[in-house]
Design a protein around this nucleic acid. Structure first.
Length: 962
RNA sequence: GCCGGAGUGGCGGAAUUGGCAGACGCGCCGGAUUCAAAAUCCGGUGCCCGCAAGGGCGUGUGGGUUCGAGUCCCACCUCCGGCACCA
């Protein structure tokens, strides 16, 4: 790592010779001394119920950071932003008498270590463990008050044993719609055996109805298929995102909008593959509904709701001539069914073959082939009002409302993955159908009249037809919508929707339906560096689970873990574990030769439940002990969870899903894992790209004069170069991907970590993104110097204290205690620190503090700059750490002033000030104001029409004209 | 396109409930100290006019509500984030 050039003040701060002065050197000594003591004394160890030292009378706080991936770059200054924030909160709560659980660990499986291993031939375990060691050292150097005894890493067999165990629970469970909960799969078999449940044509269990098949009639294969169809973890041949360059499949969440891999930006293709899936869709409703009960940022809740994508509407069956089977469609606007003049199937829809007439067969086949070839990128590029393509199948269906025959088309604007992969097209009231209908000359009857005075939206107006007609996709009043049995004419859309749905249901033509955008979670990866699945495959194709007693299934040692990359989108994946030793791969059992599952779990697996393991990290009997879990998760889960907003829909959704399954099965006591969530902002910085658009290391970029880019102050018009070539500047989140990482190590070395802690918290509001401005770090450093000098005589190193308190300083101390206490609770650390600075400045001017005042100040400072606070606390004669010292209190009477100066406004402009008693009543204030010389002068004889007095705030005089 | 979030001095930001806009810090200017420099300390610092007293303007833009608007309402502009043919 290249060290950035030191700024001038830091050089001299380091070189300070006075041993009693708060220099970087002294800060370093103090910090390592206290870090060593905290570790030796286990100052921050949390005690579980039943442990010696556990105090049941204290309230608890479970405060959690999103654990980091141990990257080769180590920590950058963006990581500690959240960590310092939670640390301050935890230290504060300990002083307020809370039993605090504050753990840290590592999310250590994942692609970067594997890719590094492939490139450099080092086992990912070695690089990962080395990276963990570096990050632990860096975290400890920041003085974060973690209970390090509880450290976990997802790659440890003791840990992933339980990740595998949870997978087995998913495999052995199904979602019982009758109770809306996960239940053991045995209950399903029992329900089927007893006849309470029967099996339908799609191998699905339903409550006993006519025509269902009973369990006794099924052969072994069918029974296995029925159970597989309900398990929360199941194998399925599904169209997946296959990335040949990475040699693996990716989750939807890992594919960019451009249809490329999130990591590495390689092309991704859709292809069918047999993969492990998790039935997260079963929980769509609960995942959406339970967001109402968590204290999370609204934007994150909204992102999850959008991701889950609930829509209410109806399923409608359109009979077709060619087969007995109707085409089923989902629509959110059943009230527009009278306007459905054609149907569209996704090109991949299974009914296409049976509907297509001989005459149309060639064009249909051509179109389907063409669609298949076109990448997601191309399909996306045409999205949103762009050109629509499609062909007529030659087949017809009957509109169940009008009874008229309508043509069936195929088009790639209908997606197989949502709804039923088929739509009824209502061109007058759907923008996509409108574009398609005009292109292919299909009828466009109006069945909804917009409200009076309706102006088309810009989007609707942009699609105006040659005759100036516009589509209307809003809610209005139904027209031309009646048959012999039902009429919607004159009804508002919402009512029409209800009436038509009732009619559809009563006539067996359709039913009410809720659809979700959320898809089941693709859970297999063709990688080495992940958790092996505890699953075995028999030669006859059957899949069996490894017994719980045989966990963990340990990842085998291998030399070559290269994924088989290829340029051929059709090449079948061969995961690295296919090359594992046969002793691992093959399991003999009861004379059957099983092969282990060769895929591994995705990186999200380990992070789905780590917050539970922290509660009881060394338990080898259970995932987490029941009493400890009940104690720490009480009150709705983790009390305070802090991390970046980038996990809004991935980690946070997956973890909620697993938690709900564990809750249903009785392993945890709360329906949600994280009661309160907070997203810290990003630290941003400049980054640079070369002519090809490739990011270059920011630390090596220079300006025209050859000075490092980081030191350039005036950036308007500045030109930058990397290795002699011009580069362009941009501004973004600091991190590995923009190669503009700044390490906290250098800041700690130049100023001490107490300064870094203060600086990062002082930069601005915790949830805002803000620029890394190394120039500003000197400010908090100077503050600590002044604070130190306030307490310590720099000539002798002895404490300096006055005997009698200054009355004004005492009042300000009370106000500061009040403000800092309140600000910490609100996470407004920047203003809390500003108040501490003001206090130090005022106390310095007033000639110092008494011993008692100094003690209270040190306690206030402790959560923010714990090392220097501990040092001063020890100098004040205390033997014990201040970590659990009671937080100082304040006297409300001393927080307010006896007299207040009120600004006096004339027509909204401040013209004078009057000083009155704080509790003076408005009439008295008004008299005092009107008697004031300056007010009289400013009035200049004009008449006073009204005087607004806001006691304690302001006086505003409204004058008459002239 | 849709859905969120945000725009305040040279810079980071403060103003918690409609009540003195710019707390606090950086930077800059001046002074003390010093052989000199750094560090440190003291004072000043929104912009414009003025020697000053004082005056005018000022929270992205334009309107509105109010005794009073950074804060509330309407319209728009810019930037950041999420989603994107989801029927």
């Amino acid at each position: 790592m290249t060290k950035s050039p030191s700024t001038k003040p830091a050089d001299t701060a380091t070189a300070d010779r006075n041993p009693f002065r708060y220099s970087a050197q002294l800060a370093g000594e103090i910090e390592s001394r206290w870090q060593t003591r905290w570790e030796r004394d286990r100052t921050f160890a949390a005690h579980n119920p039943g442990d010696p030292g556990f105090d049941a009378t204290q309230p608890k706080l479970y405060c959690l950071d999103m654990f980091p991936y141990p990257s080769g770059e180590g920590l950058h200054v963006g990581h500690p932003l959240g960590y310092i924030a939670t640390d301050i909160y935890c230290r504060f709560r300990r002083m307020r008498g809370f039993n605090v659980l504050h753990p840290m660990g590592f999310d250590a499986f994942g692609l970067p270590a594997e890719q590094f291993a492939v490139e450099h031939g080092v086992h990912p375990r070695l690089t990962t463990e080395r990276n963990i060691a570096t990050m632990v050292r860096q975290l400890k150097a920041l003085g974060l008050s973690y209970d390090w005894d509880r450290r976990v890493a997802t790659i440890e067999p003791d840990y992933y044993k339980w990740t595998q165990w949870i997978f087995l629970q998913l495999y052995h469970s199904w979602f019982d719609p009758r109770v809306g909960k996960a239940r053991p799969i045995d209950e399903l078999s029992r329900g089927l055996e007893s006849g309470e449940l029967v099996v339908d044509d799609h191998h699905r269990a339903t409550p006993a109805v006519e025509g269902g098949r009973v369990w006794a009639d099924l052969n072994e294969n069918d029974r296995v298929a029925v159970l597989a169809n309900h398990r929360l973890a199941y194998l399925a041949e599904v169209p997946v995102n296959w990335c040949p360059a990475l040699g693996t499949v990716l989750a939807n969440e890992e594919v960019t909008n451009e249809g490329r891999s999130d990591r590495g930006n390689h092309p991704v293709y859709k292809r069918p593959l047999k993969q492990w899936m998790l039935r997260i869709t079963a929980y769509a409703e609960r995942l959406a509904d339970d967001l109402d009960h968590v204290q999370w940022p609204e934007p994150v809740k909204l992102m999850q709701r959008n991701w889950i994508g609930r829509s209410e509407g109806a399923m409608i069956d359109f009979p077709i001539k060619a087969t007995d089977e109707p085409i089923r469609v989902f629509t959110t606007r059943p009230d527009t069914v009278f306007g459905a003049t054609y149907m569209v199937l996704a090109p991949e829809h299974p009914l296409v073959d049976r509907i297509t007439t001989d005459q149309q067969r060639r064009v249909v086949t051509d179109y389907r082939r063409q669609t298949q070839r076109r990448s997601e990128v191309e399909r996306m590029a045409e999205a949103g009002g762009g050109e629509k393509t499609g062909v007529f199948t030659g087949g017809h269906a009957v509109n169940p409302a009008t009874g008229r025959e309508i043509p069936i088309w195929i088009a790639d604007y209908v997606l197989m993955g949502y709804g039923t992969g088929a739509i009824m097209a209502v061109p007058a009231h759907d923008l996509r159908d409108w574009v398609f209908a005009w292109r292919f000359d299909l009828p466009v009857p109006t069945v909804v009249e917009p409200p009076a005075g309706y102006e088309p939206t810009s989007e609707e107006a942009a699609l105006a037809a040659p005759d100036k007609r516009c589509p209307f996709s809003g809610w209005g009043t139904s027209v031309n919508s009646a048959n012999d049995e039902v009429s919607l004419d004159g009804l508002p859309s919402d009512e029409a929707k209800r009436i038509i749905t009732e009619w559809l249901e009563s006539t067996g033509r359709g039913c009410r339906e809720v659809q979700y955008k959320l898809r089941d979670w693709l859970f297999s990866r063709q990688r080495y560096w992940g958790e092996p699945f505890p699953m075995l495959h028999a030669p006859d194709g059957r899949t069996v689970a490894v017994d719980e007693s045989e966990l963990p299934v340990v990842l085998p040692e291998m030399e070559d873990f290269t994924p088989e990359a290829s340029d051929d989108p059709e090449a079948p994946p061969r995961p690295p574990l296919a090359r594992a030793p046969e002793s691992w791969r093959i399991v003999q059992r009861d004379g059957v030769r099983y092969e282990r599952e060769l895929n591994t779990m995705p990186q999200w697996a380990g992070s789905c439940w780590y917050y539970l393991r922290f509660i009881d990290p060394r338990n080898d009997e259970q995932l987490v002990g029941h009493d400890a879990e009940r104690y720490w998760m009480a009150g709705g889960g983790v009390d305070f969870y802090v991390g970046g907003v980038e996990h809004a829909v991935l980690h946070l959704l997956y973890a909620r899903f697993w938690h709900k399954v564990l809750y249903d099965l009785g392993h945890v006591s709360t329906p949600e894992p994280f009661g309160r969530l907070f997203n810290q902002g990003y630290i941003q910085g400049y980054a640079y790209r070369d002519a090809r658009g490739v990011v270059v290391p920011a630390a090596e970029v220079v300006d025209e004069n050859g000075s490092p880019a980081a030191e350039v102050q005036d950036r308007a018009g500045a030109k930058f170069f990397w290795q002699g070539d011009p580069v362009t500047q941009e501004y973004g989140k600091i991190g590995k991907s923009l190669k503009n990482v700044v390490s906290p190590d250098e800041i700690c070395e130049e100023y001490g970590c107490d300064t870094l802690r203060l600086y990062e918290m002082y930069m601005g509001p915790l949830d805002a993104s803000k620029p890394w401005a190394p120039r500003d770090i000197i400010g908090p450093f100077r503050f600590l110097q002044r604070a130190w000098r306030l307490a310590v005589d720099e000539r002798t190193g002895e404490l300096t204290m006055r005997d009698e308190p200054d009355a004004d300083v005492e009042r300000q101390l009370h106000r500061t205690i009040a403000k800092v206490t309140d600000d910490i609770e609100r996470l407004a650390y920047n203003t809390a620190i500003a108040a501490l600075i003001e206090l130090v400045n005022a106390a310095t001017s007033a000639g110092g503090l008494t011993r008692d005042q100094l003690q209270r100040f040190v306690l206030l400072l402790a959560p923010f700059a714990p090392h220097v606070a501990e040092e001063l606390w020890a100098k004040l004669g205390h033997q014990q750490s201040l970590a659990c010292e009671p937080w100082p209190s304040y006297d409300p009477a001393l927080v307010t002033h006896d007299q207040v100066e009120l600004p006096v406004q004339l027509q909204g402009k401040v013209r004078a000030r009057v000083t009155v008693d704080a509790d003076a009543d408005p009439a008295l204030i008004e008299a005092a104001v009107l008697a004031d010389e300056k007010v009289k002068a400013a009035l200049a004889g004009r008449s006073v029409r009204k005087v607004v007095v806001v006691p304690g705030k302001i006086v505003n005089i409204v004058v008459g004209r002239g």
